[in-house]
Computed example of a mutant assay.
Amino acid sequence: MRLDAHQHFWQFDPQRDAWITEEMSVIRRDFMPADLQPLLETRGIDGCVAVQADQSLTETDFLLGLAQQHDCIKAVVGWVDLRSDNLSTDLQRYVANPYFKGVRHILQAETAGYMTEDQFVQGVKKLKDHNLTYDILITESQLDEATQLIQLLPEMPLVIDHIAKPNIQQASFAEWAKQMEKISRFDHVAVKLSGMVTEAGWQSWDRDDFAPYLDFCMEHFGAKRLMYGSDWPVCLLAADYGQVHDLLADYIASLSVFEQDQIMGKTAADFYSIKV
């Protein structure tokens, strides 16, 4: 099964979605499964993982509802308040749903120390009790703290979204690589090869811009811990769906069929327990 391990749906609300600024006009509209399905089919992708974009239980309900209506959605990474006294109740509300596979919190927007607070860490640990995963959304400046979080969560299924968002436009690499090498030593951590075009120059990126990052991820994580993600529709700020897909597909074309299959679907299927 070929999977897109990271994309979003929303019905645009200018207040709720204030992060989508005027300069992002191309994505200031609704994006729904009917918009994505033909894009997946064009590139031979069998399904996708829908990831939360808003931090509310309403968002989780919205994505799970879409999953029940559209076969292309194979899994949902929703949101629950991991620091809430009601966390156990909230999880019980969702764990029976076969599409509910994991949780994400927008850590990139939080202040230093948030992800290592005991209440947050204990909340993430509760996910493992329900066989759920956790997506780590950070920028490269948070990698040291993320490493501390990972150390507190041994064997917890974790994935780094968007290769930790290095500043590709400024060719930021050395410090990112130093921190990511430390994370690569933890076998229970995977990485999504996603979100890269929007960390480069939106209108000026070149394929060569991404090669050092992809080379590093292949060397240190290997195909079994890497998964393709489009980050659609956010990617539209810098590239269309086909460009994002082809960027990675062309890069891995020289790899073995086994490695290509891992990156383009099997890693994600295994991580999110998606039946193939």
Rank of each mutant, 00 (worst) to 15 (best):
V124C: 06
R29W: 01
V76Q: 02
Y99C: 09
Q151P: 08
L64Y: 04
V76R: 04
Y114T: 10
A253C: 15
A268C: 14
L143W: 06
D35N: 13
D240M: 07
L64Q: 03
S256L: 09
D81L: 08
D135E: 07
A269C: 13
T116F: 09
A146I: 00
Y228C: 08
K182H: 08
L255R: 14
M156I: 06
P38H: 13
G201R: 10
E41V: 07
V95R: 11
E199P: 04
A146P: 06
W202L: 14
S273W: 01
I138N: 10
F12I: 12
A34F: 05
E59R: 01
G195N: 02
K128V: 11
T267F: 01
S273L: 10
K182M: 08
Y114V: 08
Q142G: 00
D81W: 08
E23P: 00
P157F: 02
S184T: 03
L158D: 00
H130S: 14
D144Y: 14
M218L: 15
T21P: 08
Q122S: 13
T42Q: 15
W19I: 13
L82G: 01
E140W: 04
I138K: 07
V121Y: 00
I136V: 11
L152R: 12
A177Y: 00
P98Y: 00
N167P: 08
P157Q: 01
V80E: 07
K126W: 02
I27K: 02
Q52N: 12
L247S: 02
F100L: 07
E117K: 10
T116E: 11
H162E: 04
G44I: 10
Q260L: 07
